[in-house]
Simulated scan of single mutants.
Amino acid sequence: MNDVQHASAWAARLFGDRQEGVRQRIGQAIRDRQERALTCQDIAGGSTKHAYGGARYPGFHESLMEEFARIDVDDPDFNNEVDFVNPDGFFREIDLVCYGGALLWPFRFSDRDTSAERAKLSNSRLVRELMGFAPSPPPVEDLFGTHLPHSRSIDMRPRLAALPSDTKLLLIPFSSNANGLLKAYWGIGTLIDDLGTIAWSDGPDPLPLPATPTRRGLTLLPPQTHLTDLPSFDSGAQPVPELFSRPDADEKNPGLSPQSEKQEHEPLTTEEEHEN
């Protein structure tokens, strides 16, 4: 588990005395999704990691939904601070979590054990829209030393635009691979170029990572039957053929050929004759 004994002043301003609980929920959601992704990879097998990658994203958003949906059970007084937003064009059944005025955005920045100081965001349209809730980027200088403001003229999709204007974008970078979850952070930052470079104004600070995942929603497979336990096709009871003996009169007449099956008797009348 990461060393997170110190409190973050910016997180305390954002979440108040519930800061530690929020951090634990985010860390638990990341741990749970990593465990599910590894389980998918174990079941799929093979030399590639496609199953792990497919279960990882956008699964981390889904795990955050599950974790924060339980607040109405664990902390009913704070339930009105939880909102689930599905941006138009995002995954249909997966929402972004908005909690206490913070819009949570988890993303994997590395598959190695490294610091989030150099984490980069994907330069997708959705990410550029989310920057509307991030701090203003620092100005850039031209060749003559003149400060030029960054341009953010992209329009937000309606459901994002409907969020309160004071919503804060909370970045949650983490590093992981198919061998395990490495590190996780959170902080406030903004995108400053097309390469995904982040300028951090608060953090990134370490997040607690529980040692074990919750078993919520996981079911055990029933005992599987091995092929050696299944009956073979020839292990059943053998059918007994029905035998018919020849009449005594036929046996005394050597000119008649034997009959192997009992012959059907032709009806004396037909259905058409009965109808006439």
Rank of each mutant, 00 (worst) to 15 (best):
A102H: 00
S151E: 10
R125V: 05
F133D: 00
F78D: 15
R112S: 08
N79D: 08
A134D: 05
V73T: 12
K120E: 12
L121A: 09
L103P: 05
F90C: 03
L170F: 03
P164Y: 06
A119D: 08
P106A: 12
P149D: 11
D95N: 13
D77I: 04
A119K: 03
G100M: 00
L126R: 12
H147G: 06
M156H: 11
I154C: 05
V73F: 14
L104H: 08
P135D: 13
R159Q: 05
V82S: 15
L160N: 04
L163F: 06
C98Q: 14
G132K: 10
D155C: 11
P76L: 00
D95P: 02
L121E: 03
E81N: 04
S122C: 08
E93N: 14
A116Y: 10
D83C: 07
M131E: 10
L148C: 11
D166V: 04
S151P: 06
N123Y: 15
C98E: 14
D75W: 14
S122H: 10
P158N: 08
V82E: 13
I154R: 13
D113M: 02
R128E: 10
F91V: 15
L130T: 01
V82H: 11
P164H: 06
N79P: 00
R118P: 00
V140I: 15
G145D: 12
P149L: 02
E129F: 05
